[in-house]
Design a protein around this nucleic acid. Structure first.
Length: 724
DNA sequence: ACCACCTGTTATTAT
DNA sequence: AACAGGTGGT
């Protein structure tokens, strides 16, 4: 087999990693060093050269996007489908295992996944039943508590509360929540991981089966694994297996959801003869961008140590822009985007990154104003929209009548006369009988335990679900969905609403039908669960991949997303907006131990997304939660060496005193001039220095004159004088 | 029981 | 600024 084709395009370090014969391989891969490439090529190497069966390979990633990309690239290299190979996120793989072995995992066959929204609803209900006042005991806090415990692999019985009132109350909620999930056949995200772990830990024969099957384990983004994920990998990794992990401690940005950077060090301890391979050559960014990233991250302590370098050219300086306010910041970005495209470049090259989703609105407005096509990732995603969740709730009930979360959601949506009172009666009955709401409701209808009106309405609802289910057993998924949208009355309800949003909702429902049409069940139903219906597969897909926010995937567009979701991506032109203290680094993280360092890693991730040009923008005035704030410039900007940056200040259409403020970045300019300095010119009058380049006789400055606007002047000739 | 309107609260990051 | 939850009228 031709080995050279797999390694010919790789550098020495990459080749070493791809071909390593070791049992355990740890690849410390800096940003832009070809991490995914190494993984893809290593899989190809295993299959083509070492003649390993794809069937014995397990590759784990952190996002569905990454999984899809990896599989696609592997198949391209192999020039054939990688049949039998498991590639997916920890969550999707855990889900797959639990479906295949639901009995051993102690789950009902039709168990369903609870997303964060659903989870919070269930917790709220449970807390209400425990008579916990939700002002004193915010449900969000309980949600956070439960998830954090699950991240660490702890069941309520394993939590020591030492008489602490807070902890013991939370544990009570945790117990009750578990009970609620159990009767309803619901599994939250973290439960997927924890159950999958327990499945193996408690069933040695199953574990043995998978240990023997997965001779080759590869894990991407290892710095993002949490305790339970690591434990799960450790279980699977048996003496005979080979394991490759790839990670970068400087890009660990998920500590808040339980990720442990220490897992990388732990790996070295657990696999003492593991080979460590470092990828330090960056192929992505200009040296300027890389230097800036290295400088920022160097402010962190406790790094594993790694020095990224590049053969790339210096490129453009990093541009800092101080906007008057957030609108103007957005307009500035839009204008730069137009410049970029006018120079013959593509919208696809561009990303706008921000710390929090709330920032996307204003940026979005600016794009709309200038007719710049854009695509927002994150925020409220498709499968999280109310009308979509409603429809999914019907579909879920059709699959699993005991799904209490879905039952509660749609029992009175659209309104059918089953108000809070009636549902309370059902809830009480369910609690009494220790059954699901569906079963309680059925019993009460039969036993005539409800007031006549409610009884009729409830009977109607139960019948509707049964009817939807039985009448669509034989039809395609998309038709099934269409029938549900029509017969449930959801379409009618949405059609009757007025306003712009109603139209969008209608379109979303239409879009859902399209999504089911495009959904390929053959691809999504794993070999080991052939009984899975296309509907079940679709529901799982909807829960595990909330879906992107917008359609039009094929149109060229600017990509807008949070810094977190930008990890793993790269763009020639990158804007990072909102470089302000308390926004980035975020206030919330400043209060947490280690929070600032994680924010700094996030800054590192952001900076290293840029290939050619990077803009860092901030606003001097920003509206936050309705109030005006005057944030100071993010410390991360001051951590970048001044010689790598240039600051622009434009005289924009915003009405304000032009020479209002000194720039926060103070740099020495040539011949005693500096950025932001006011100057006087014999012909052009008063102006402010916004940029300069070159030294000595070559030095030139860019000045924004009050009257004449932007001018570029050679310092040697222009008779510029400082002014006040 | 339902709807419209008002009020208080609340925005980090996400599988 | 936006949304969930609560209040009061029908």
């Amino acid at each position: 087999m031709d080995a050279s084709s797999i390694i010919e395009s790789l550098n020495d370090a990459q080749t070493e990693a791809v071909t390593a014969p070791n049992k355990a391989l740890l690849v410390l891969a800096g940003a832009g060093s070809g991490k995914t490439r190494v993984l893809v090529h290593r899989i190809a190497w295993l299959v083509k050269v070492e003649q390993v069966s794809a069937h014995s390979i397990l590759a784990v990633t952190f996002t569905n996007k990454a999984a899809k990309e990896m599989l696609g690239r592997v198949e391209d290299m192999l020039a054939m489908p990688a049949r039998g190979m498991w590639v997916g996120t920890f969550h999707s793989i855990a889900h797959r295992l639990l479906r295949a072995h639901y009995r051993d995992a102690g789950l009902p066959e039709g168990f369903q996944i609870l997303d964060a929204q659903d989870q919070l609803r269930v917790i709220k209900r449970v807390m209400k039943e425990l008579n916990l006042d939700d002002n004193e005991w915010p449900p969000k806090q309980a949600q956070w508590f439960i998830n954090a415990k699950k991240d660490d692999g702890l069941r309520p019985g394993n939590i020591q509360h030492h008489g602490d009132f807070f902890v013991s109350t939370m544990v009570k909620v945790y117990y009750a929540y578990e009970e609620a999930c159990k009767t309803a056949g619901l599994v939250d995200f973290n439960e997927l991981l924890l159950r999958a772990y327990e499945l193996w830990a408690n069933n040695p024969h199953l574990l043995k089966h998978y240990q023997e099957r997965f001779q080759h384990i590869l894990v991407d983004e290892f710095q993002d694994t949490n305790a339970i994920q690591y434990a799960w990998i450790r279980l699977l990794c048996h003496e005979g297996n080979r394991i490759t992990i790839v990670g970068d401690d400087d890009q660990s940005i998920y500590g808040w959801r339980g990720a442990k950077i220490e897992n990388i060090q732990q790996f070295e301890n657990d696999f003492p003869d593991c080979k460590i391979s470092r990828l330090e050559q960056n192929y992505r960014s200009t040296s300027t961008i890389l230097k800036a990233a290295n400088a920022v991250i160097s402010y962190n302590s406790d790094r594993m140590g790694k020095s990224l370098w590049t053969e790339g050219n210096e490129g453009e300086p990093i541009t800092i822009y101080s906007a008057f306010n957030e609108q103007e910041e957005a307009r500035f970005i839009a204008a730069r985007i137009e410049d970029w495209v006018q120079q013959g470049n593509s919208y696809n090259d561009i990303a706008i990154l921000y710390r929090s989703n709330a920032q996307s609105r204003i940026l979005e407005d600016a794009m709309l104003n200038r007719n710049i096509p854009y695509r927002i990732y994150g925020g409220l995603r498709f499968f999280e929209r109310a009308e979509i969740k409603d429809t999914m709730a019907y579909l879920r009930l059709m699959t699993n009548r005991d799904d209490d979360a879905s039952f509660e959601r749609v029992v009175n949506t659209p309104a059918r006369g089953l108000g809070e009172k009636s549902v309370d009666l059902i809830r009480a009955k369910a609690r009494e009988d220790e059954t699901s709401l569906w079963q309680a409701a059925s019993k009460m209808v039969v036993d005539q335990l409800l007031p006549p009106r409610a009884r009729t309405a409830m009977a109607g609802f139960l019948h509707l679900i049964n009817e939807l289910d039985s009448s669509t057993k034989e039809v395609d998924l998309w038709e099934q969905t269409e029938v549900v949208i029509e017969h449930s009355g959801l379409m009618d309800k949405v059609s009757k609403e007025k306003g712009e949003k109603a139209q969008a909702r209608k379109e979303n429902l239409q879009e859902l039908v399209n999504a089911t049409r495009e959904f390929d069940p053959d691809e999504m139903i794993p070999e080991e669960t052939p009984d899975m219906t296309p509907l079940m597969a679709f529901i799982a897909h909807a829960s595990l991949e909330a879906g992107d926010t917008q359609a039009d995937e094929y149109q060229e567009s600017v990509q807008m997303m949070t810094l977190h979701s930008a990890k793993g991506l790269e763009f020639p032109l990158v804007f990072i907006a909102g470089m302000e203290e308390k926004l980035f680094p975020h206030q919330m993280s400043l209060d947490e131990p280690g929070g600032l360092e994680e924010e700094r890693r996030l800054a590192y991730v952001g900076i290293t997304r840029a290939m050619q040009q990077l803009y860092l923008t901030h606003a001097e005035k920003r509206r936050m939660w309705g109030r005006e704030t005057y944030p100071s410039v993010s410390r991360f900007i001051s951590e970048i060496p001044a010689e790598l940056m240039t600051e622009v200040r434009l005289n924009t259409q915003v009405q304000r005193p032009v020479f209002q403020k000194q720039s926060p970045i103070k740099r020495k300019g040539p011949e005693g001039f500096h950025l932001g300095q006011l100057v006087q010119h014999p012909k052009f009058g008063k102006g402010i220095i916004i940029n300069y380049e070159g030294e000595g006789p070559q030095a030139s400055v860019q000045v924004n004159f009050e009257k004449e606007g932007l001018k570029k002047l050679m310092l040697a000739y222009a008779k510029l004088e400082p002014s006040s």
